[in-house]
C-alpha cells in the first residue's frame, strides 16, 4: 500500500477522521485510522526493538489512545501523523515503570497553547506536513540515513556512530544539517 508522497493515508484525511471521533465517537472513522496506522506503528516499534507481539499490542494501545484523546488533537500543533508518532513514542517510554519521562513529554505538549477560537486550519497543517516530507526526500543520502536511524529506529546518537563506524561529531552534524534544512523549508509558513 504504497502512497504517492504527500497524499494523506486515508480518505477523508486522518485529521478529519480524528475530528469525527471527537465529535461523534465515530467507530468507522476509527476503523479506517486503525487500518492505515496500526501496521505502520507496528513496523516502527519493531524497528525500535520490540518483539512482534509487544509491537502489536503497543500499536493497538496507540490507536486506542488516538480514540480516547481525539478531542485533544489540534491541527494547530501539526499533522495527525506527527501526533500519532508522538503518541507511539510516549507509550514506548511509558512501558518502563518508575519512569516519569512520559509525564515530562505530556506536560511539554500541554505548554503549546492552542487557541480554541481559531478553527482547525487543515490546509496549512497539510502544507506544513507536505513541505517537511519533501524536504526529507531531498536530503543527501547520508543525512537521510541518520534521520531514519534517529526517527524510525529511535537510536541514540552514540549508537548510530557505532553502527555507522563514524565519529559522534559527524552524526551530530549530519543530523543538525538535516534538521536545519527541514526547518528552513517551513520558514515562510506561519
Amino acid at each position: 500500500m504504497d502512497q504517492p508522497s504527500g497524499d494523506a493515508l486515508t480518505d477523508p484525511p486522518p485529521e478529519e477522521l480524528i475530528a469525527q471521533i471527537a465529535l461523534a465517537q465515530d467507530k468507522n472513522a476509527f476503523a479506517t485510522l486503525f487500518d492505515a496506522y496500526a501496521p505502520r506503528v507496528k513496523f516502527f516499534l519493531m524497528r525500535q526493538g520490540a518483539s512482534p507481539d509487544s509491537a502489536e499490542e503497543l500499536a493497538q494501545e496507540v490507536l486506542l489512545t488516538v480514540w480516547r484523546k481525539a478531542s485533544y488533537f489540534s491541527s494547530q500543533r501539526g499533522s495527525a501523523s506527527a501526533w500519532i508518532f508522538t503518541i507511539a513514542r510516549n507509550l514506548r517510554i511509558d512501558e518502563t515503570r518508575r519512569n516519569k519521562r512520559a509525564r515530562v513529554y505530556a506536560m511539554v505538549e500541554e505548554f503549546d497553547d492552542v487557541d480554541p477560537d481559531t478553527p482547525h486550519d487543515l490546509v496549512s497543517s497539510k502544507e506544513h506536513a507536505l513541505r517537511v516530507r519533501s524536504a526529507i526526500g531531498e536530503l543527501p543520502v547520508e543525512q537521510q540515513e541518520v534521520v531514519r536511524l534517529s526517527f524510525v529506529e529511535g537510536a541514540p546518537h552514540s549508537e548510530i556512530a557505532q553502527r555507522l563506524k563514524l565519529p559522534l561529531g559527524t552524526i551530530k552534524s549530519r543530523l543538525r544539517l538535516a534538521m536545519r534544512r527541514m526547518r528552513k523549508s517551513l520558514e515562510d509558513l506561519a
Partner: peptide, 11 residues
C-alpha cells in the same frame, strides 16, 4: 516541526 519528520517517515 521535528515531530513532523517522524510523522512523515511513519506515512
Amino acid at each position: 516541526e521535528m515531530s513532523e519528520v517522524g510523522g512523515g517517515l511513519l506515512d
